[in-house]
Design a protein around this nucleic acid. Sequence first.
DNA 1: ATTAATTGGTTTATAATATAAACTACTTTT
DNA 2: AAAAGTAGTTTATATTATAAACCAATTAAT
Lengths: 92, 92
Amino acid sequence: MRELNPLLHSQLRLAVMSVLMNVEEADFVFLKEKTESTAGNLSVQLDKLSAADYITVEKGFVGKKTRTVCRITPRGRKAFEDYVDALRDYIG
Amino acid sequence: MRELNPLLHSQLRLAVMSVLMNVEEADFVFLKEKTESTAGNLSVQLDKLSAADYITVEKGFVGKKTRTVCRITPRGRKAFEDYVDALRDYIG
DNA sequence: ATTAATTGGTTTATAATATAAACTACTTTT
DNA sequence: AAAAGTAGTTTATATTATAAACCAATTAAT
């Protein structure tokens, strides 16, 4: 049986990737709402995804407020597709 | 977003359930081969699945040798189907 | 103007999980 | 009778997930 990429086989990281597959970009607050996660958990998981170069994380400003924007990378897109493909072996 | 049943969102437990969804019964050795897991890990995960009443585990004999036979329960089947359903929200 | 609350996060401590390694008990082979 | 194999279980360790505590800045209330 094919292995399920452990970096993607995590509820929150999978949810984040799932969102990013369908939008051009998403900021921290949006991802937090969409995934219903805590900020702490989200912060940690975004770090892991960006360390693997599955996403990019850009910190900028909107007026005086910070804004963290995430985007999926081609590598991330590929990994997600492979993961889904492997998963189909399990769930039929 | 719907939560992914953490008892099923584990590579090995999911693989076991996936096998059991498609056969009447499967013994320890067969599951170990199919899932390519170590005996120790498999033993632990079978315990968890049976504690949740997702599978039954019957210890018997074939001649003088022990044989551990596993079967999925209706509750397990339902949980697996729900899990797959929830997962579709993530993987589209 | 000062305090209090909110926003947008990060860091750190703890709980849960997965996994391998070591072990037990019994059987078969030499 | 010793050695090797089979069928597992138990236990120790590494990894992961998660929440709680924290920080720095902004906005709102007194």
